[in-house]
Simulated scan of single mutants.
Amino acid sequence: MPDKICDVSGCNGESFRTVPSELAEKVFSLKEKKTKVHLCREHYKKYKKETKKDRELGRMDWV
């Protein structure tokens, strides 16, 4: 059994990455409210595709 599992509703995959929940909530329905969520490899790929614009704008704000 993996130490951490994916926080997306209906998924029991092994955690691959941890991401901010505010961005993950835009793409997925999550099991519970947290500040950071664990995503499996498949959901992380989808998260990257769906939030690409938001993440680019976030990086521009710091410049």
Rank of each mutant, 00 (worst) to 15 (best):
M1R: 13
E32M: 13
V27Q: 06
D3P: 01
C6Y: 12
M60W: 08
T51M: 03
T18Q: 15
S29P: 00
Y44S: 00
F16K: 01
C40V: 13
H43C: 07
W62N: 10
H43R: 05
I5W: 02
E14S: 14
E50M: 08
G10P: 05
E56V: 09
S15P: 00
R17I: 08
L57N: 08
K45S: 10
K36C: 05
K31H: 02
E22K: 14
K46M: 11
I5G: 02
N12F: 10
V37R: 06
S9P: 00
W62K: 12
R59D: 07
K53C: 02
F16Y: 15
E25L: 12
K45A: 14
C6S: 10
R55P: 01
R55V: 08
E22Y: 14
R59P: 00
D54R: 03
E32C: 12
K34F: 07
K31Y: 02
T18F: 14
G10L: 13
K48D: 02
D3I: 02
G58H: 05
E25I: 11
F28H: 00
A24I: 06
E32K: 15
N12W: 05
R59A: 13
G13N: 15
S29R: 09
A24N: 11
L30K: 04
K26L: 15
P2V: 01
M60E: 12
H38A: 10
K49D: 04
E42A: 15
K48C: 12
K45I: 11
T35Q: 13
C6T: 06
P2M: 02
E25H: 12
E50Q: 09
C11T: 08
V27F: 09
H43M: 06
K34H: 11
R59M: 09
N12Y: 08
C40I: 11
R17T: 04
V63S: 15
L30F: 05
Y44N: 01
E56S: 03
K33E: 09
L23S: 08
F16C: 01
E14M: 13
G10M: 12
D3G: 03
P20Q: 02
V37W: 10
P20N: 03
K4F: 13
V63Y: 15
S21M: 10
E14H: 08
K53Q: 05
K34G: 05
H38K: 13
T51K: 04
K36E: 14
C11W: 09
K36D: 09
K26Q: 14
W62G: 00
D54A: 14
M60C: 00
E22L: 10
E14I: 09
R17Y: 07
P20Y: 03
R55E: 03
C6A: 04
T51G: 03
K33R: 14
K26E: 14
D3M: 07
D7R: 05
D61F: 15
